[in-house]
């Protein structure tokens, strides 16, 4: 066989330098991402351990104690509980609504309504969180204080706390969860729906028994991204959570013997305390430890969402 390739030393093609530089640029950019990630984990991680090494706080006391006093004693258990209950309550609000929105756009809405709705959700997605915080402060908190309290006999105290925070976070994660759930539903092949209809299933049965299970892993990916966002949200939550070192809910001595009142989350604790912390003080170190806890939880959530993404069928 005859080839036209020339023998001898390879000659440098025209444009080879440009191509090399281009590749170098891509490779370096990728490297920067990796290096940044390692640096963040290393920096936050090493700082966070100083709570236990430099400030001599026992890890058990730090994580389990509820007493947080910037000068004397640092325990973050209430903030962990605050963050976790915020995530849970936000999911309770956001998941059913997001799923309903996704089902409506994907399966029920007529064509002329479908695309305006999708655009509206995109717009929703772009709203800065501080605006939701303001909205929570001006609208949701008074609503809870003046109306829900009336119905529930005052258990919501002054209106701040877990409930308005969860409402604000719901606004923020709803479009994320809804769009990802919508995409997952759209990825379910039409043949599957037809198979169900052809067996005499109604639309409701097809949605609940075939569509949602088939889209399940994809929907879970969206939910986990929602969890990550709920856990990490700071500014909007700070507006309405009340910033108080109390459990988000509990029993009280007065009627109605139950309260859901001002509390704190890991993120808002970080926000409110950082300015006052002097470098090297126990408070300063403790705030780094809180940051590291947030980092680790978010890494776990990403891993879990990857696991669900791998289970995607369609």
């Amino acid at each position: 066989m005859i080839t036209n390739l020339s023998k001898g030393r390879p000659t440098i093609r025209k444009g080879a330098t440009a191509e090399f530089l281009g590749h170098l640029w891509f490779a370096l950019s990728a490297l920067v991402v990796v290096v940044l990630l390692v640096l963040v984990y290393y920096f936050v991680g090493s700082q966070s351990f100083q709570t236990f090494t430099q400030s001599h706080i026992s890890p058990a006391d730090f994580f389990l104690s509820s007493n947080w006093d910037a000068q004397n004693h640092l325990g973050i258990s209430y903030f962990i509980i605050g963050s976790l209950s915020l995530v849970l309550l936000s999911l309770v609000f956001a998941v059913p609504i997001s799923l309903a929105v996704a089902v409506f756009i994907s399966e029920i809405a007529p064509k002329w309504l479908k695309y305006p709705l999708l655009r509206a959700i995109e717009l929703f997605l772009g709203i800065p969180s501080v605006i939701f915080g303001l909205f929570g402060l001006i609208v949701i908190v008074p609503l809870i204080r003046n109306f829900l309290n009336l119905i529930a006999g005052g258990i919501f105290y002054n209106g701040y706390g877990l409930v308005p925070a969860a409402v604000v976070v719901t606004f923020m994660i709803l479009p994320t969860v809804a769009t990802i759930a919508y995409d997952a539903m759209q990825a379910v092949p039409r043949e599957l729906r037809e198979g169900s209809y052809a067996l005499g299933a109604t639309r409701r049965q097809t949605i609940s028994k075939v569509l949602i299970p088939a889209a399940g892993p994809g929907i879970m990916t969206g939910v986990i991204l929602g969890i990550a966002r709920a856990l990490g949200e700071t500014v909007a939550v700070a507006f309405v959570i009340g910033n108080s070192q109390h459990l988000p809910f509990g029993l009280s001595n007065y009627f109605p013997y139950l309260y859901i009142g001002p509390t704190s989350a890991l993120t808002t604790q970080l926000l409110f305390n950082f300015k006052e912390a002097t470098v090297g003080s126990p408070l300063y170190n403790a705030l780094w430890t809180i940051s590291f806890v947030l980092l680790v939880i978010s890494a776990i959530l990403v891993a879990v969402s990857r696991a669900f993404a791998a289970k995607r069928i369609y």
Partner: peptide, 29 residues
Amino acid sequence: LRQKVGMVFQKPNPFPMSIYDNVAYGPRL
């Protein structure tokens, strides 16, 4: 009508569930 007049499609379209549940889908409905 669709219960009486069943349909098999061009591309096999089993539901993403067990073999048993696929067959039991219609009778359960």
